[in-house]
């Protein structure tokens, strides 16, 4: 983009201003400021209540100071959440029941299992749909309808069902929910991707006397990769949501979703917020990991870094 002859060399400050760093950071700062303000505003009621009971009249500075350190705040201040997060990850042993690393690992297992199951299922159905007109016409509409069903409505039942069938633990039901949520984006993108080679390319392979199998592996599959990875990013996020939702209905004691539920039931907002942020961090890590995988795969295939399907 930058034409050296026309544009003078940009200083590093200009690069920062022109890039995304500065706007993103300032918006983040604004969010933190608003958060602190909201924490004071929402927690002040409790402070005033306590003061009225004690018969004292706190000054504004005292109110602010108190809203920052409450044990069960309506809205914890950012540093409280950060402290809890630190305490429950770094300070605890990884195997401890109080460690978010432990709970995150439980959730991650179900997420990955569900993600892989969903991706395999999505690709398999997509291959079927691309090759069979009957399947395209009969299964595709139901795949679309299946996504308008709120899967979480099924979550408690899937858990009871798998228990009734004799499967212990929660990994299997969580995996099913994750897979259900993640297969659809993969399916839709793969159908698009497998159909993306143009008539000229298919004709070329025909002139090579390529069989259906060869066309599939040498043309359709490679052509679908950019679409595949675009879907993967959506699917991995959806899969994490599935795993967490699978932990929400009563009974779970392990996993980030269960942590949120415990925090909610025992009135410990800090636990809830820490689990929420742990889940957010996990989601970020997963999406970034898929992005790296995409770059690696596309580079190995000799394609430029940015995929075609955005």
């Amino acid at each position: 983009m930058t034409d050296a002859a026309v544009m003078p060399r940009r200083t590093s400050w200009q690069r920062v201003r022109g890039g995304k760093m500065l706007p993103v950071l300032s918006v983040l700062c604004a969010i933190v400021v608003i958060w602190y303000a909201a924490a004071v505003w929402m927690n002040a009621t409790w402070t005033l209540d306590q003061a009225a009971r004690a018969g004292t009249e706190p000054t504004f500075a005292e109110i602010v100071a108190d809203t920052m350190v409450q044990k069960r705040p309506l809205l914890p201040a950012p540093h409280q959440v950060a402290a809890t997060l630190w305490d429950q990850t770094i300070e605890q042993k990884v195997t401890s029941k109080r460690s978010l690393v432990f709970h995150g690992w439980i959730t991650l297992q179900a997420t990955i299992l569900g993600f892989v199951t969903g991706a395999v299922l999505g690709v398999a159905v997509a291959v079927g749909i691309v090759h069979s007109r009957t399947m395209d016409l009969s299964v595709m509409p139901w795949a679309v309808i299946s996504q308008t069903i709120p899967i979480v409505a099924l979550a408690p039942m899937i858990i009871v069902l798998s228990n009734a069938v004799g499967i212990d633990g929660r990994t299997v039901p969580k995996t099913i929910i994750s897979a259900y949520l993640s297969y659809f984006p993969v399916l839709v993108s793969m159908v698009k991707g497998l159909r993306s080679p143009g008539a000229a390319q298919r004709d070329l392979l025909k002139t090579y006397n390529a069989s259906g199998m060869q066309t599939f592996f040498k043309l359709r599959l490679p052509a679908s990769l950019p679409y595949f990875f675009a879907a993967m990013k959506v699917a991995v996020a959806a899969s994490l949501i599935g795993a967490i939702v699978g932990e929400l209905p009563t009974g779970a004691i392990q996993g980030l979703g269960a942590r949120m539920l415990i925090g909610s039931q025992f009135g410990e907002p800090l636990i809830m917020w820490a689990a929420l942020f742990a889940a957010a961090i996990l989601a970020g890590v997963l999406v970034i990991a898929v992005g790296l995988l995409e770059r690696l795969a596309l580079r190995l295939m000799g394609q430029p870094g940015q995929g075609g399907a955005r």
Partner: peptide
């Protein structure tokens, strides 16, 4: 826009249900 869009994109990938 530059500040909010990446954050918005990131937040839509989060398990907001939490």
């Amino acid at each position: 826009q530059k500040g909010l869009l990446p954050i918005g994109n990131f937040v839509s990938a989060l398990p907001i249900i939490g």
